[in-house]
Amino acid sequence: MDAIFDALGNPHRRKLLDALRQRDGQTLSELEATLPVTRFGVMKHLKVLEDAHLVVTRKIGREKFHYLNPVPIQQVSDRWISRYAAPLVRSMSDVQRQLEGSLPAMSATAPIHVYELYIKAPPQAVWEVLTDDARTPLWQKSNMACRTDWRAGGAITFLVGDQPVIVGELVEVDPPSKLVHTFSARWSEEVAADQPSRVTWEVQPVGENVCKLVLTHDDFGGETATSRQVSGGWPEALSRLKTLIETGEPLLVPPASAAA
């Protein structure tokens, strides 16, 4: 975690992360306007953030887009914020967002949410957990079940009790490296009005018994209620998934409502 703290220790790098939080998927030219330094200086700061996995990049055509990856920060939170303090911290963060007012603008032309993490396990181990409906409650919300027909064209449904909260269709199933499915949120009337989006899981071996997991959630059709709301859930779910795969034990994170 030293790389994360070193990256966050510089105010210029924090400003770049703030800029990506306000509008994800920016090019180097756009981010240059954020800092009073040279283009080379911005590139150096972005390289530090990439090395700490706080920023991930994607090439789309001739452009290279930069995305905020909050998963490492979530892992710091999981390690250092106690299960008693976590609900209070979340509540304070929610209040801050409400006071700040406006929601961050989203890019309609590039992937909206890109998350990247390294897992100490071979790709097959990651794939087996990811595609095992019986283990879904261990890395998603504990009250969330999954029912899936594991084939291209098959249905995938996440449920709380008997109520579907996410429904979709498997677009691509390529074990153990790639899984693509559509994502239609149903947990509120607001998100149910949105068009289906797309979730892509990519598992890449990077060494002996180590792999990189990249999750891209895109194709929202612009800024929508779904695109805003999923950004809070994915980092925690991915942190839970990493812990489960590496230790065999679920990561227990209390809900915000548990605060006394």
Rank of each mutant, 00 (worst) to 15 (best):
T38E: 03
G41W: 04
H113A: 10
R135K: 15
Q75V: 02
S107C: 10
D133N: 13
V37Q: 07
V37G: 03
A152H: 13
A125D: 15
V114C: 06
D2M: 10
D94R: 05
L17E: 04
A152N: 15
N10D: 14
R90Y: 06
E236Q: 03
M144S: 06
V37S: 01
E249G: 12
S239L: 04
P254V: 02
G161P: 03
R83I: 04
P70F: 00
P137F: 02
E246A: 15
H181A: 11
P36R: 11
K15D: 11
A256K: 03
A193M: 05
V210D: 06
Q195W: 09
I60D: 03
Q26P: 03
R147S: 12
A193L: 07
K141F: 07
K178E: 15
V48D: 07
S102C: 08
V42D: 00
F65L: 10
E246G: 15
V56Y: 00
Q26S: 01
L68A: 01
D162A: 11
M92R: 09
A33R: 10
D6S: 13
R198I: 13
Q229E: 15
V173D: 08
M106K: 12
Q124F: 12
D24K: 05
S177R: 15
I245P: 07
W127A: 12
K47Q: 15
L251D: 03
Q74L: 04
A192K: 12
E63R: 14
K15R: 14
S197D: 11
V95L: 12
S231V: 05
L138F: 07
A52Y: 02
G153N: 13
M1E: 14
L46P: 02
A260G: 15
Y84T: 13
S239Q: 08
G154M: 11
S142N: 00
D6P: 06
G233H: 04
I156C: 02
R186H: 12
W187C: 12
L103G: 04
P11R: 11
